[in-house]
Design a protein around this nucleic acid. Structure first.
Ligand SMILES: NC(=O)c1ccc[n+]([C@@H]2O[C@H](COP(=O)([O-])OP(=O)(O)OC[C@H]3O[C@@H](n4cnc5c(N)ncnc54)[C@H](O)[C@@H]3O)[C@@H](O)[C@H]2O)c1
Ligand SMILES: NC(=O)c1ccc[n+]([C@@H]2O[C@H](COP(=O)([O-])OP(=O)(O)OC[C@H]3O[C@@H](n4cnc5c(N)ncnc54)[C@H](O)[C@@H]3O)[C@@H](O)[C@H]2O)c1
Lengths: 210, 210
DNA sequence: GCTAGCTTGTGAATTAAATCACAAGTTAGA
DNA sequence: TCTAACTTGTGATTTAATTCACAAGCTAGC
């Protein structure tokens, strides 16, 4: 299989969320044109994206909403439950731990870790805050699939190294810092300062370009 | 001026954060090669990115850290304060409102809005939760530059429409839904479910591709 | 069973982004 | 002053992503 671009994967997520939306409203079929309109892209793009994985539509008719949803869930790996741990029980970690949207999508937050003795042992909407010292042991014992990192930037790389050593293969980081991981580990970083700077760049340079 | 790609702007943010890092550690000069190594790109990419905006280095020597930092801050529009409002005082809104990282970068959270009477009037680390009914008035009166949207997905588009009508030109949304804005309004969306799906895609398809 | 009207799937063409590669500056040291 | 060692800035080239455009396939209606 050809290497799939990250932009394609992002769009697949978007298509899926529309399919679930219109599926919930009773739509049984849809077209690449519908998906394109909703997702702000072109119908050729939609078809090309899907074509990397197979041929899911019927010419002249379009796509079956339930079938395409299911195929996309399969492609994205959403036909199963994923065990997630959150590392860092601070402001953002706490928001994430109690976020209902994750469970709805099959992401089970089954552990939250912190180094602050004042937080360890606290109950948080069904999850207990655990001692960061047990992180490696739990990664092995509880077989977390994904770690969400919500600690100060200075701690991020060290904790990632620990987690990688313990066998974690996927990390979502909120620390605004560059982190390096081995090639077999997937890392995504959400950097809010960078998003805001994208906005201020646009506000500042509006009119000059485009 | 040529249209600048979003990927270029993102990298400029990355370069700036490195410059601030090494500048704080006393470095006076740096090279495109340094920046490339730190940012996981190539030196040619760094130089090309910068070349869209001018010529900031000295051949044979590299870049002055303070000068390049300052030029990048200028380009990104960070040489000033930006007034930010947060719309939605829930779990994520509260984390954002109390996040120190914003103020450090010149983003002043000067208003938090919610529709829940139980939350309106509460004090939150120096900011009072305000009534969403006053949103339009305040966008005009307080001249917010940026709105951060942290309400349930169902409410997102309606609130965006209200804000746009009141004159807001930049929005950062955390609602996991597609939002449309006029061409003169810049919107960035942080969709955590999508980030996680990027990870599960990689976990599921590892080995098959790449 | 035939036609008109759609819509897919995909090579070909185009556009955009990243990389190469090197002339042109700059500095330090002899 | 001259040379050796660097590093920038940028056209040229390559690679990647997107868009075009159309044959092929499907359905509904007659
Ligand atoms: N709060 C936000 O809205 C926000 C927004 C964007 C980015 N971030 C980033 O997310 C990260 C966390 O931010 P926050 O606002 O939640 O900070 P916070 O200070 O509220 O939380 C950080 C938590 O990490 C814990 N911690 C520190 N070192 C640790 C270690 N070695 N092992 C385990 N736990 C450790 C602390 O005890 C604390 O509970 C930071 O990198 C921050 O820049 C936060
Ligand atoms: N909590 C997280 O970690 C997290 C993560 C990713 C995405 N999100 C997204 O962020 C958004 C907020 O999530 P949350 O977890 O903070 O939810 P929440 O329910 O804790 O907060 C939502 C807040 O919005 C307020 N609100 C609702 N309608 C409003 C309106 N019309 N005007 C003003 N305020 C209104 C509610 O009163 C509530 O305080 C959601 O779209 C969610 O999907 C949250």
């Amino acid at each position: 299989m050809k290497r799939i671009a990250e932009s394609t994967v992002r769009r697949l997520s978007i298509y899926l969320s529309f399919l679930e939306d219109i599926g919930a409203r009773g739509a049984l079929t849809t077209s690449s044109d519908d998906l394109a309109r909703l997702g702000g892209t072109t119908s050729a793009q939609v078809r090309k994206d899907l074509s990397f994985f197979g041929s899911f539509g019927k010419r002249g008719l379009g796509y079956s909403v339930p079938e395409l949803s299911s195929r996309l869930r399969e492609i994205l790996g959403l036909e199963r439950q994923w065990r997630v741990c959150i590392v860092g029980a601070g402001k953002i970690g706490s928001a994430l731990a109690r976020y209902a949207g994750f469970a709805e999508r099959g992401f089970m937050v089954s552990g939250v870790y912190d180094s602050d003795p004042g937080k360890i042992g606290k109950q948080w909407g069904g999850v207990t805050v655990l001692d960061i010292a047990d992180l490696e042991r739990d990664i092995v014992a509880r077989q977390y699939h994904i770690a969400v990192l919500a600690v100060p930037a200075e701690e991020a790389q060290v904790l990632v190294d620990r987690m990688v050593k313990a066998g974690i293969k996927a990390i979502l980081s909120f620390a605004p810092t560059q982190i390096t991981v081995p090639a077999d580990v997937t890392l995504r970083t959400v950097n809010m300062a960078m998003e805001l700077e994208g906005l201020t760049f646009a506000l500042t340079n509006r009119g000059a370009d485009r």
